[in-house]
Write a protein that binds this DNA or RNA. Structure first.
Lengths: 143, 143
DNA sequence: TGGCCGCCCATACTTAAGGGTGATTTAATG
DNA sequence: CATTAAATCACCCTTAAGTATGGGCGGCCA
């Protein structure tokens, strides 16, 4: 968390630095102020979009919903003791997503996903994600 | 779609206009260029965040939508250019074995398996073994 | 209300996986 | 015979995955 904040801070600092750099290099060449401003605006818009994507889409706006194609696996899932969240992770894992991608999709941290996967491996009695996928298929945990 | 793009274009135009407005109002007051730039940067960062939010909240990670052509294994395997050995590795990989375990089972070294898997990933156009398994299933490379 | 559980997050560490490059051997093939 | 492809293996380096541990928070329940 703190690391993330720090990272953003540093990133912005670097950006400001680059800004000044560009400023000197371009201004001495008599480039128009308008052009320079446009550049800055564009650059920071891009940065804004990026950070916006990273930050604002967190926590809320989570309507994955679905919950359609299931019925008989619920019992199996419950029997093994896999929680709802863990099941979500399992599904995404089976789709070939990396932990990081799963974390992004569920709007949680990488560490959280690692915890979930670890617990999953314990409950499925496997050691690797590929085995987990196989085991889940064998147990017909997927619709 | 086009309407959205147009909308954003117009919005940005307006913003640029406001920019110029602010520019004149502040520059005549002898405000420092740095301050002005900072303001612009901040403003457009905010705009970026906003647009980012709008974009990400709507878009929702399109499903693979690949739906590649599908026949059956032998032909498919040859078509993609997967060699016999690579196919063996792929099968074992799909069973959830680690590279080391595959190496042991085929009586070759770990590095060899790594080479095979790398080539497989290239040919299957994936980045991870879990994806490779998924892709192989989609393409019905398995009996 | 105290305890359990699910969920989230973090730090620190170890191991597995993957990328890039280069090299050798063998078998097939024009 | 020279070329080509498959298969084998090695070294280095980066990133992802997995393990261990601990803390915080909110809901549920006996």
């Amino acid at each position: 968390m703190w690391r993330t904040i720090l990272l953003y801070g540093v990133s912005f600092a670097i950006l400001i630095f680059l800004l000044k750099l560009i400023e000197y290099r371009f201004l001495v060449r008599d480039l128009s102020l308008e052009f320079y401003l446009g550049l800055v605006a564009l650059l920071f818009t891009a940065v804004g979009v990026w950070t916006g994507k990273k930050i604002t889409s967190k926590k809320f706006v989570t309507p994955p919903a679905t919950t359609a194609p299931r019925k008989h696996n619920e019992g199996q899932v419950a029997k093994i003791g896999i929680s709802k969240r863990e099941y979500e992770v399992l599904l995404l894992m089976a789709k070939g997503l990396s932990n990081q991608e799963i974390a992004d999709q569920l709007h949680v941290s990488l560490n959280t996903i690692k915890t979930h996967t670890s617990n999953l491996f314990l409950k499925l009695e496997v050691k690797r994600r590929t085995q987990a996928i196989q085991k889940a298929k064998d147990l017909e945990l997927f619709g």
